[in-house]
Amino acid sequence: MSSEGIRVAALEDIPVGEGIAIGKSVTGTEDDIALLRDDDGSVYALDDTCPHEIASLAEGWVEDGFVECPMHSSKFCLKSGEVQCLPATDNARPHRLEIRDGAVFLFPNEAP
C-alpha cells in the first residue's frame, strides 16, 4: 500500500450526519470500511460491520462524535471505535484517514 493512502472518496460524497461504505475490494481489509461524517464536518473511518450483529454502521446515525447502529442502537465513538452501550460489547476498529484538497485518503489497518 502507498504511504500516501488510498483515495476513497471526495469529501462532498459524504453527507454531514451520515456515512458511506467503501468496499473491502478497494481497501484490502477484512471488512468494508465506513466513512462517517460527524455533524461538525469531521470524517472518521471505522470497520463497517457492527460487531454485535450484521448491520452497516455506514447506514447508522452520526452525531456528536458517535455513530449509532441502525439495527439495535449500539453507539460507537467515531475517534476510537469504543462501544458506548449495549447490546454491542466489542469495539469497532478505527482506521486512519486524511483529508487533502477535498479528497479523503484512507490508510487501512492503521490506527488513527
Rank of each mutant, 00 (worst) to 15 (best):
M1F: 08
E4L: 01
G5Q: 06
R7N: 09
V8G: 12
L11Y: 10
P15S: 14
P15K: 14
P15G: 11
V16C: 06
V16Y: 11
G19Y: 04
I20D: 05
I20P: 03
A21I: 13
I22Q: 03
G23Q: 07
S25C: 08
G28D: 09
G28S: 08
T29W: 05
T29H: 01
E30R: 10
D31C: 02
D31I: 00
D32W: 08
A34I: 09
A34K: 00
A34Y: 03
L36D: 14
D39N: 13
G41P: 15
G41T: 14
G41I: 15
G41K: 12
V43A: 02
V43Q: 02
V43S: 05
A45V: 14
L46C: 04
L46E: 05
D47W: 10
D47C: 06
D48H: 01
T49D: 00
C50G: 08
C50P: 05
H52G: 07
H52A: 10
I54N: 11
A55N: 04
A55Q: 01
A55D: 04
A55V: 03
A55T: 02
S56A: 11
S56R: 14
S56F: 10
A58I: 08
A58Q: 07
V62P: 08
D64L: 07
C69R: 04
C69F: 08
M71T: 06
S74A: 15
S80I: 06
G81W: 02
V83N: 06
C85H: 03
C85L: 11
L86H: 00
P87G: 00
P87A: 04
T89A: 03
T89R: 13
D90C: 09
N91Q: 09
A92C: 11
A92D: 03
R93S: 15
H95G: 01
H95M: 00
H95Y: 02
R96N: 12
E98G: 00
E98V: 00
E98Y: 00
I99G: 12
D101R: 07
G102C: 13
F105A: 06
F107G: 05
E110C: 05
A111V: 10
